[in-house]
Amino acid sequence: MSIASQDAGIRTGRVARTFIYLVLLLFALFYLLPLYVMLVNSVKPLSEITGGGMMSLPQVWTLEPWAKAWSTAQIGVEPTGLRPYFWNSISMVVPAVAISTILGALNGYVLTKWRFRGDTILFGLMLFACFIPFQIVLIPMAAVLGTLGLSGTTAGLVLVHLVYGIGFSTLYFRNYYAVFPTELVRAAQIDGAGFFRIFWRILLPSSGPISVVCVIWQFTNIWNDFLFGASFASGDGAPMTVALNNLVQSSTGVKEYNVHFAGAILAALPTLLVYIVAGRYFVRGLMAGSVKG
């Protein structure tokens, strides 16, 4: 993505260039519109929204919707705001991302540097697992989580995300290590380094970029998940996305749009921050979804 523009340069006239910039600008506005709407409406009183001022800047600036969304909005039984669910998501995402990344790295290492008969088929099976519609596993997973006593718990969700995240993390590391010179591994073998030592001393020090890609991808995916959260943890153990949906869909009382928007931004904030800080890695991660990238 960072490759400089080609110097061949397709020549375009002045009028055409103006037109190009205009189209790009219009699309930029299109993509920015929902973010703008969420931001401005999260800092204005409800009356301004219902009064037809959704597109306008606030006349009265207020942070109250944010405070309410965060700590007092009625989501479950108690008026707790999104705060406990935010922490649910954090305590779900961190272990799930960490473990799936570590396993993915080890798997990628084995699948490229310790090849054995049938490894491509096994990788193919892992890869296909990334693309299954998760509806196909909802019923048995619910049964298994119930049997293990993990229904509705963060631990249960960690397990679920770990299992269905391994395919992608393996894909990332496999593709990355595939172009890592195998001669280095051989040299280290002759030098007397064993399986783990080679991984730790030779491959891992060069794995920074792909680890970032993998962590970002897993983080975004798991944080943004709704299906598993809604299926296996809809109560107090619900993650942020489920809580936000409950907040927005709740049919009791007045619809507090400004609180909904503030809540939506809160739910989007972690992934948005990651995107702003490490956007180019995020894109690379998305591209790897097309297997080759």
Partner: peptide, 10 residues
């Protein structure tokens, strides 16, 4: 062993 690409640990 000395390798074609030298295989120096980067």
């Amino acid at each position: 062993m000395v390798f074609q690409s030298y295989a120096l640990y980067p």
